[in-house]
Amino acid sequence: MSQESFYKEISEAIVSLDREKAISFAKKAIEENMNLLDVVEKGFGAGIRRIGELWEEGEFFLPELMLGGNIVQESMEILLPFLKANKEDIMSGKVVIATIEGDIHSIGKTIVATMLSANGFEVYDLGADVSAEKIINTALEKNANIIGVSALLTTTMIGQKKLIEILQDKGIRDKFKVILGGAPVTQNWVNECQADGYADNAIEAVKLIKKLMD
């Protein structure tokens, strides 16, 4: 089998949400000493991007998007230890993500975290109801590129602004790109907070972060 058709088979396994097949392909790639960077990018990466497109086209639903993301995540965990390059060189970037303090709405944030991870980002998902200080400390500790903060309530949105103010006060605003998420977030709010952007859904979030990382 040519390499190209192997990549295509991987991508098809991802799109058909076949976990067993995807994992067996990951193992096969390791056993056969293939170029794992290409396997990740042209096989698994292509598959998850296709799933994203299918979701945008309305063909796929969120449970399928999540399952696709989880399968790619699992496959990546198998592949990562065998990738010869540095982790930093392979991964698209590091993201610390959380729902802000006082807010327990986590589903949107979780979908974004899964899709980022499946798209090759190193993601630290701190969960819901997380203080701005904890998010910042984790971002510093992990040397993250991106901080993603979600809020679903107007009463907790203020925490998104507070996080950016703390970064400014500490003189470390430039260390991170900060993106916002959640139903009430608008471009006006992004401007008011001096954030770097917001996304309406998980696929847009991936695109936004890729753009910010360029």
């Binding site: 979701w55 309305g58 639903f61 969120l62 449970p63 589903i107 949107g108 979908i111 139903a183 859904n201 998980a202």
Partner: peptide, 8 residues
Amino acid sequence: VLDMRRGT
């Protein structure tokens, strides 16, 4: 119910 397209 969660909207399975949009997560709303």
